[in-house]
Computed example of a mutant assay.
Amino acid sequence: MEKKVFIFWDNSNIFISGRTVASEKEGEDASYQLRLQFNNILELASAGRDIECAIAVGSVPPELRHVWNKMEQSGIKVELHERGLDSNKEQAVDQALQVHMLRKAFDYNGTPGIAVMLTGDGHGFLDGVGFHADLERMHKKGWGIEVIAWERTCNSKLKKWASEVGTFIRLEDYYESVTFRDDYNGVIRRSKPLNLDNRIKST
C-alpha cells in the first residue's frame, strides 16, 4: 500500500529563491515578474499520490492576500504570521512549519507517510534545529523524505542528505511548468503543462 503524502511548504523560500533563478534564466526583469504556478507545484509534490496534508506557512503583507487566496484554492492550508513591526521581517514562520511537521510525526507515529518539504533552507542543522533536523527525526521514525528546492540556492548539506536517504527534486528541471511571468498588465509567459515522467518518488 502506497504511503500518503504530507506536504510542508515554505513559500517565501521557494518564491525568493525562484526570483534568483528567474533572473539568471530570463533576465533581470523576470525576477520581478515571476509568479508561482501553485497547482503545478502541488501536483509535482504529490506526484499522483493521495495527499493527507498540505500546509504552507508565510507572512501577511496585505498586498499579498490574493496570493494566499490562490494557494488555498489549490487545496493548500495556509497559515499566516504577522511580520515584525520594526524589522518588517518574517517572525516564527519556520518554527510554525516545524511544529506542523512534528505534530504529524507524532500523530502518525504508527503509520508514517512521505514528508515532502518545499524549501531550500537547511539552516540550523548543526545545532539540531531547523527543517533539516526535523526531517532527520521523521526519517528515523520511518518516514519517506522528499525535498523539493531550487538547487541554485538550496543548502548543500540538506541536498546531499535528502539525496542519500530519499529524493531531492530540482525545481530548475520544472522551471517553465512551476512558474509564469506577469507584470500586472498581462501575462508575459504562461506556465507549460507539467510532465512527471522522470519524477522520482521515495518509499
Rank of each mutant, 00 (worst) to 15 (best):
E172L: 14
H123M: 13
H139G: 05
F125C: 08
S177Y: 09
T153A: 15
K160M: 14
D173Q: 14
L171T: 07
F168A: 04
G124L: 05
R152P: 14
L126V: 06
L135F: 02
V147N: 00
G124E: 04
F131L: 09
A162R: 00
E176C: 11
D173G: 12
K140Q: 11
W150K: 03
C154N: 04
K141G: 06
S163R: 15
G166R: 01
R152L: 15
K140S: 10
H132M: 11
K141H: 15
V178G: 00
H123W: 11
M138T: 04
E151C: 08
E164R: 11
V165W: 03
V147R: 01
Y174A: 01
M138K: 08
T167N: 13
W150A: 02
G124N: 08
A149M: 06
G142V: 11
S177H: 13
F180K: 14
E172Y: 06
L171H: 05
L135T: 03
R170V: 12
C154Q: 08
K157F: 06
R152M: 15
G130M: 02
A149H: 04
F168Q: 03
R152E: 14
R152V: 13
E146K: 02
H123G: 13
S177M: 14
E164F: 13
K157N: 12
S163V: 12
G124T: 01
E136M: 10
F125N: 10
M138L: 13
C154T: 09
K141N: 13
W143D: 08
